[in-house]
Design a binder for these strands. Sequence first.
DNA 1: TTTTAATCGAGACGGTACGTCGCGTCTTGTT
DNA 2: AACAAGACGCGACGTACCGTCTCGATTAAAA
Lengths: 196, 196, 196, 196
Amino acid sequence: MEDIVSSKGRPRDPKTSELIRKVALELAYRGGIGNATVERIADQSGVAKSTIYRRWPNAASIVMEGFLDEIGPLIAYGEKDSIVATVKSNIRHLVSALAGQRGELLRHLVGAAQANMELRQAFLDQLIVPRRELARAAFQDAIARKELRADANPEIILDLLYGAVYYRLFVSFRPFDPKFVDAIVDRAFHGLTASP
Amino acid sequence: MEDIVSSKGRPRDPKTSELIRKVALELAYRGGIGNATVERIADQSGVAKSTIYRRWPNAASIVMEGFLDEIGPLIAYGEKDSIVATVKSNIRHLVSALAGQRGELLRHLVGAAQANMELRQAFLDQLIVPRRELARAAFQDAIARKELRADANPEIILDLLYGAVYYRLFVSFRPFDPKFVDAIVDRAFHGLTASP
Amino acid sequence: MEDIVSSKGRPRDPKTSELIRKVALELAYRGGIGNATVERIADQSGVAKSTIYRRWPNAASIVMEGFLDEIGPLIAYGEKDSIVATVKSNIRHLVSALAGQRGELLRHLVGAAQANMELRQAFLDQLIVPRRELARAAFQDAIARKELRADANPEIILDLLYGAVYYRLFVSFRPFDPKFVDAIVDRAFHGLTASP
Amino acid sequence: MEDIVSSKGRPRDPKTSELIRKVALELAYRGGIGNATVERIADQSGVAKSTIYRRWPNAASIVMEGFLDEIGPLIAYGEKDSIVATVKSNIRHLVSALAGQRGELLRHLVGAAQANMELRQAFLDQLIVPRRELARAAFQDAIARKELRADANPEIILDLLYGAVYYRLFVSFRPFDPKFVDAIVDRAFHGLTASP
DNA sequence: TTTTAATCGAGACGGTACGTCGCGTCTTGTT
DNA sequence: AACAAGACGCGACGTACCGTCTCGATTAAAA
């Protein structure tokens, strides 16, 4: 979202960006995304509105950036012994990262993204696409080493699995129960793994 | 959403509600949900703001109502010979109903619903829950008549299937390809149907 | 400046206009016209900015209105025995009305009017033109009753006299000394009055 | 207005000052004084804002300087055979120099000066006072050589005459008609010249 | 047939936030 | 030093909508 371009003129203070992100996120956590207005972020951070607008196009983008910074480490991709174990582990991390208020905030952010291209792109580029890329690669590996049947369709399986997670969050608004992850993964992989 | 107040005094004109819904939907279709403001709806329909607020709590609710009215008939629930055929048919109807601008609008509505309880409830009560209820019943029937294995978990299967659909729409923002429905349904039901 | 038009809809509260004018004038008196911003007027009067903008196009117009309301009675036109006495009396009233801070404010207002058509018009229509009209009529009378020579040119005399007053105020920024009015009037009328 | 800072370091480029003045004046001519902002002057001249602020305290001062540079030669003081001829000639030059857009700009400048001490001072020191000084001297000469009666009051006559000119410009906003100068001067000097 | 009470259009109102503009100051690296 | 560049805090601008409110004018059922 932020341009890092020239070396001409007074440089932007990166601490200011950090502060703005922090304040924005804080406001969004208590009070929802509608609480994180540019006006309030400016007030509470002691930064001028113009400084904010010089760096982001709107308040939601700041919150998104803060959110992505925060959630990144929590859902760091990890490989396990088997493809099923890998997928289960990653989804489990995602699900637990989205428990409580963080899930609430993601809901609001993805909600806002529906009517805001820029937000949508940030969300895709920095969260969805890279993780999906890694998962796809893991599928290819598993097929290559004969752990997974060659006719397994990674796209469909990933749509089913991540779909189920986000569906509960965004559409049916039900919490995640403990056996949920095992259940969806086992079902999605049914009959596809070589080992009995 | 609309209160029906009885007896004395000038009664509300139901044609006015219809007009308001129509105008609101129109505005939302061109220009997104943010284009359907109460102010503009009032202007363009020649209705006073107070008349609108007497009937709905906010603009998004009007659009939601209009949308649900419109989409209802398009995705009328239908039963087929087998449970798989039934599910495929219903998802196919949903998917084709959400093609083009109607999907866009749903995205906006569900987006708005993330930060708006009332909207969320309307969406659940009038679209998601009833359809899911019907699907659940169909599953029970199929199990009862031994078409489906007894250990099939309808909740999980439905989460996977509807999840995949809405995921494409809301999260990964990819269009539906022709073989998508067959692929997800076959995968979700794999090994659960009695007949080969 | 204010439209008084329809009887449709909730009527504007005239007390609000009064209050706004009062606050605006107050702000302008202490701190100059630049102190009377719409923002501050709204703050200090407890009136919403939108209410102000519904009634006036900008802050200076409010101050102008308040100023004209205030100065009107102070320079009420009055006729004396002779044309010279009449003119002297009226200019004397004007000069004393513009002593001190009121003159300061007029300077600011006329200053602002130089780059603002609306302001200029208000100033002309409500202050300059009507008073000049009256003076012109008095000249005609004086000529008719042979008090003033027929070749006296009212326009030129008035330009000279009011010019001298405003010139001191706006251009050379010098205060009025006690004999100023007598001096300019006697000079401007020199040789034009019938009586010695 | 410009500080001349001496000695060490890179010297200021006088051509830059010229350029700035030119651009500022240009902007003010089309779009009024409000169009000549420091920001825009910097932009259009390719000069940094800091360079401008090192030389002038604000945008209006630049325009004033440019204006005074421009108008100076146009109203160069000149002496004629008689005091009346001298005054007429000078006022005529002034009036024709202020025709059209130049008068417009002066209006804006004097307008701005009403709320800006520095501007006021520049205007007085560089335009009003020196010319008045010369006129005063011419009056003394005329009295000394008995062309003018000893009881003629130069201050009053000058206030009346220049007042009439500026009054038309700033207050009553009327254009100058051809006979205006003769009319005001003859009236102001009536009965004061020795010659019949 | 007259109440009587809710509806309707119109639009004023206090708010909140928007995104922009210009100010005058400051911090860079370059000349 | 001065300079181009541009960040920065600040204050104000004028606009858009929000949801509530006050008007006078219908409109129909109840009295």
